[in-house]
Structure formats: structure tokens, C-alpha cells
Amino acid sequence: HDTTVHINGLRIEVHGASEEILKWIEEAARRGVEAEEIKRWVEEALK
């Protein structure tokens, strides 16, 4: 999927993410993980 995830006011563009990654992002956000940190993880995961 190409999608934009909104976390604590930060937009994260996610290209080619699976449902699993999207669920993981939402879970991390709920746990209060910094949005910048999530963004870094997602970029690494999608390389």
C-alpha cells in the first residue's frame, strides 16, 4: 500500500508497506514511540 500515517501530528509517507507494517506503526504510536523514531524504522524496513 501507499499510505500516509499520521502520528502525533507528524505525517509519515509509507510506500509499499504491508498491513503488518501499518499495524506495527499504529501499535508503536499507541505505546508513545517518538514519531521520528518510527519513521526511521519504517524507512529501514522498506529498504
Rank of each mutant, 00 (worst) to 15 (best):
H1Y: 13
H1E: 12
H1L: 12
H1P: 12
H1R: 11
H1W: 11
H1I: 12
H1N: 13
D2E: 14
D2L: 15
D2Q: 15
D2A: 15
D2S: 15
T3E: 13
T3Q: 13
T3C: 08
T3G: 15
T3L: 13
T3K: 15
T3F: 14
T3D: 13
T3W: 05
T3Y: 11
T4K: 07
T4L: 06
T4E: 11
T4P: 10
T4N: 08
V5R: 05
V5C: 12
V5Y: 00
V5W: 00
V5H: 05
V5A: 04
H6D: 14
H6I: 15
H6T: 15
H6A: 07
H6R: 09
H6F: 02
I7T: 01
I7P: 02
I7R: 00
I7Q: 03
I7D: 09
I7V: 09
I7N: 05
N8Y: 00
N8C: 04
N8F: 00
N8G: 15
N8P: 13
N8L: 01
N8H: 04
G9Q: 04
G9K: 01
G9F: 00
G9R: 01
G9M: 01
G9P: 01
G9V: 00
G9S: 02
G9C: 05
G9D: 14
G9T: 01
G9N: 08
L10R: 06
L10G: 11
L10S: 11
L10A: 10
L10W: 00
L10N: 10
R11N: 15
R11M: 15
R11H: 15
R11V: 15
R11A: 15
R11S: 15
R11W: 12
R11E: 15
I12L: 04
I12S: 02
I12N: 02
I12C: 05
E13S: 13
E13L: 06
E13Y: 03
E13M: 07
E13W: 01
V14W: 03
V14R: 00
V14I: 14
H15P: 10
H15F: 10
H15Q: 13
H15C: 09
H15L: 14
H15R: 13
H15Y: 07
H15E: 13
H15S: 13
H15G: 14
G16I: 05
G16V: 05
G16L: 08
G16N: 10
G16D: 07
G16R: 03
G16Y: 06
G16S: 07
G16Q: 06
A17H: 04
A17T: 04
A17N: 04
A17R: 04
S18Y: 05
S18M: 06
S18L: 06
S18P: 09
S18A: 10
S18R: 05
E19A: 12
E19I: 13
E19G: 09
E19T: 12
E19H: 12
E19D: 12
E19W: 09
E20P: 05
E20T: 11
E20I: 08
E20R: 06
E20N: 08
E20C: 09
E20K: 08
I21Y: 02
I21L: 14
I21F: 08
I21V: 11
L22K: 04
L22R: 06
K23N: 11
K23C: 06
K23Y: 07
K23Q: 14
K23A: 13
K23G: 07
W24N: 02
W24E: 04
W24I: 05
W24G: 04
W24A: 08
W24T: 03
I25A: 03
I25V: 09
I25T: 01
I25C: 02
I25P: 00
I25R: 00
I25D: 00
E26S: 04
E26I: 09
E26T: 06
E26R: 04
E26F: 07
E26A: 06
E27A: 10
E27C: 06
A28S: 06
A28W: 07
A28V: 05
A28E: 04
A29F: 14
A29D: 08
A29W: 11
A29Q: 12
A29L: 15
A29M: 14
R30I: 13
R30Q: 13
R30G: 12
R30H: 11
R30V: 13
R30T: 10
R30F: 08
R30W: 05
R30D: 09
R31L: 12
R31K: 12
R31F: 07
R31Q: 11
R31D: 11
G32T: 01
G32N: 05
G32M: 06
V33F: 08
V33Q: 05
V33H: 04
V33A: 08
V33L: 12
V33W: 12
V33R: 02
V33S: 03
V33N: 02
E34S: 14
E34R: 12
E34Q: 14
E34V: 12
E34Y: 08
E34P: 14
E34L: 12
E34I: 10
E34W: 07
A35T: 09
A35F: 14
A35R: 02
A35V: 13
A35Y: 12
A35M: 09
A35K: 04
E36F: 06
E36T: 12
E36I: 12
E36S: 11
E36G: 10
E36N: 10
E37I: 14
E37M: 11
E37Y: 10
E37P: 01
E37W: 08
E37S: 09
E37H: 08
E37K: 10
E37R: 07
E37D: 12
E37T: 12
E37F: 11
E37C: 07
E37L: 13
I38K: 00
I38G: 00
I38S: 00
I38N: 00
K39G: 05
K39T: 05
K39C: 08
K39I: 14
K39R: 10
K39H: 07
R40P: 00
R40Y: 08
R40N: 09
R40L: 07
R40W: 06
R40C: 05
R40T: 06
W41K: 09
W41P: 00
W41I: 12
V42I: 10
V42K: 00
V42Q: 01
V42D: 00
V42E: 00
E43H: 03
E43Q: 06
E43Y: 02
E43V: 03
E43C: 05
E43G: 04
E44W: 02
E44H: 11
E44F: 02
E44M: 08
E44N: 14
E44K: 10
A45M: 14
A45N: 09
A45C: 11
A45I: 13
A45F: 12
A45S: 09
L46W: 06
L46P: 01
L46E: 03
L46T: 07
L46F: 07
L46N: 06
K47W: 02
K47Q: 12
K47Y: 03
K47C: 11
K47F: 03
K47G: 11
K47E: 10
